[in-house]
């Protein structure tokens, strides 16, 4: 008996293939056209994404030199003498750090309050609409708004004040504050989604151990949705890194980091500078620098950064899917 070889069942796929296929040839014409259009749209999206990658890759590789990453930009008549984009890279990192440093705690806090407390109800509704409004506001509008608010005398400590007493209203701090508004809705949304997925009985299990709501949030809920918070933060970082309008308007037209004087870090924070996006903008044929080769190289670095972030989000989401097996 034991020697009888077991024949494995035929693979499901083969069986499926034997079944008559659900062919679209029997569909009405309109449905068939719609189906083909969807199919074509999907395909062309792939082509566009591929083209962006390929072109930027070719241009980037051909123009990117290691020294570009370590040299500061400088003014010169011909493209060869304009230096690299060290300052924009530093600026990107600094601005992202400020933006996320503000948006992450506020976003997680707002989301937790919205999901776990929601009292008073009218305020919760107002906050929800407020977040939606911020999410829908174009960043250039946020930038102008920032200028309006922060160029006041009383807020001069955030930027620089000219000899005549006028407040510039342009600095890393101010741009960072407005950038945090870009990231905030993304962090709030993903945190809320995470909290909403936690079953009620998990909260009750914590209450049943004599824990307060605050302890439950701090020690059970927030740790449980770490992956959601992280993916919100990563999306927020992508948003901040990719924005140009706020940088161009709220950090001045300079490409170099220009401190405001005083203590080293504070000087940079109150000073102006650039990011990779504004560097690309200024150096592209549309800008004034007109060093398109360097714009391509910087754009390539930017693209790589954003792609790496997207990869990180995908990784985290799959981690979340694994964690969500909890009943």
């Amino acid at each position: 008996m034991a020697s009888t070889p077991l024949t494995p069942p035929a693979p499901l796929r083969a069986r499926a293939a034997n079944r008559p296929r659900d062919s679209i040839s029997s569909w009405p014409l309109a449905d068939r056209i719609g189906y083909m259009l969807c199919w074509a749209a999907g395909l062309s999206l792939c082509l566009i994404a591929g083209a962006i990658l390929l072109l930027m890759f070719i241009k980037g590789i051909s123009y990117l030199r290691p020294e570009l990453l370590v040299e500061s930009p400088s003014a010169a008549k011909d493209q060869g003498g304009t230096g690299g984009f060290l300052d924009p890279i530093e600026g990107t990192l600094l601005l992202t750090a400020i933006g996320i440093g503000l948006a992450a705690p506020v976003g997680v806090g707002v989301a937790t309050w919205l999901n776990e407390f929601q009292r008073p109800a009218w305020l919760a509704r107002a906050v929800e609409s407020g977040i939606e409004m911020i999410a829908g506001t174009p960043s250039v509008v946020l930038a102008i708004f920032g200028l309006l608010v922060f160029a006041r005398g009383s807020l001069g400590f955030l930027s620089q004040t000219s000899a005549g007493g006028a407040v510039y209203g342009r600095s890393f701090l101010i741009a960072g504050i407005m950038m945090s508004l870009l990231a905030l809705p993304l962090i709030v949304t993903s945190t809320r989604e995470g909290l909403a997925q936690i079953p009620a009985h998990l909260r009750e299990a914590s209450y049943a151990l004599g824990k307060t709501k605050a302890t439950t949030i701090r020690r059970v809920l927030l740790p449980a949705i770490r992956a959601d918070i992280a993916s919100g933060v990563t999306l927020g970082i992508g948003r901040i890194i990719g924005d140009t309008a706020i940088v161009v308007i709220l950090m001045g037209g300079t490409l170099q980091l220009q401190g405001a004087g005083g203590a080293p870090l504070l000087s940079t924070l109150r000073g102006t500078g650039s990011t990779l996006t504004s560097y690309v903008f200024e150096n592209s044929p549309a800008g004034e620098g007109n060093a398109p080769q360097k714009a391509y190289a910087a754009a390539f670095v930017l693209l790589l950064t954003v792609l790496a972030l997207n990869l990180a989000v995908t990784r985290m989401s799959s981690g979340r899917a694994a964690a969500a097996k909890q009943p």
Partner: peptide, 9 residues
């Protein structure tokens, strides 16, 4: 509770 609900730790 009815559902086993250990905390994710």
């Amino acid at each position: 509770f009815q559902q086993p609900n250990p905390f994710p730790m």
